[in-house]
Nucleic acid binder design. Sequence first.
DNA 1: TTGTTATTGAAAACCATTTCCATTAATAAG
DNA 2: CTTATTAATGGAAATGGTTTTCAATAACAA
Lengths: 157, 157
Amino acid sequence: MPRGNCQGQGWWHGKFRGCGYRLTTGREAILDLLSKSEGHLSAEDIYIKVHPRYPNVGLTTIYRTLDVLSNLGMVYKFDFGDGRARYELAEGPRGAHHHHHLVCTGCNRVIDYADFIDEEIELLQQTEKGLGKKYNFRINNHVIQFYGLCDKCNGKK
Amino acid sequence: MPRGNCQGQGWWHGKFRGCGYRLTTGREAILDLLSKSEGHLSAEDIYIKVHPRYPNVGLTTIYRTLDVLSNLGMVYKFDFGDGRARYELAEGPRGAHHHHHLVCTGCNRVIDYADFIDEEIELLQQTEKGLGKKYNFRINNHVIQFYGLCDKCNGKK
DNA sequence: TTGTTATTGAAAACCATTTCCATTAATAAG
DNA sequence: CTTATTAATGGAAATGGTTTTCAATAACAA
């Protein structure tokens, strides 16, 4: 059964099955948590939330599942510079609320923003198109992040 | 002597001295290499190039120096998803050639591009301004990256 | 030249993530 | 439903980039 780029439309089950992945308790629990949480969860965050209820979902499984989800395009993986990866559901059941990130390098707080997002998306799409053609790339993702100091951290000097 | 955000104009020496840092052989060697290399060097890359000529510049010093340079804003630190940080001189002696990155998730190749860069910068500046005001952030950096498959990796399926 | 102290290297510690491998369980076939 | 196949699992161990420790060194100011 095919495994590669399985970019479908449906939700969990169909997508998993269609790509030859099995639907397990752990995977459902992780997807469930992600869809109920407000973004930026680390593998450990997820473990701490999921493991008590599903004691036979280990940290290893969390990592493996996140990797699968990431490859399927169902989850985005971010690096906010604090030494651990963060994960976010790419699109909720009721459609995406696209946003980008504003990261405080002082306290590692991350703010989702959607201001100016339309202009950003517009520009990104043009750029993707142009770059894709020029460099012969099949672009399927992008990252925009701003780094700075939040008011609290800025005050502390 | 002050250590914090020392965003000056001059080049190495002045900047270092002004911030209370000492100018050492190792630091000069690292800066020298960075200014002569085309971007995206990892700490190890730098070590391999610098250590033979300066045997008493260890990997630890490389990391520490890169950290200092990064804090001074003289070097940008990037994560291209291959598990190691990459560093780039923020601005060459003859001024910056600003660019963003196009990363192949297949072979980890990184392409610098400067197409559309003017529009990107323009939008980024507007966004920075707006976000800074709205969220009370002192923004001093940004990242734009595109991820995809280069022609070779795309062909392989 | 000398005193102060930032900087250094080597080794050890750190810690997020990955790998190993024997066991378990999801799925398909009968 | 039962059984066979093999993907998935978890705990422990390994990995590997980065950071910390600490005694020795070297930049710099006096």
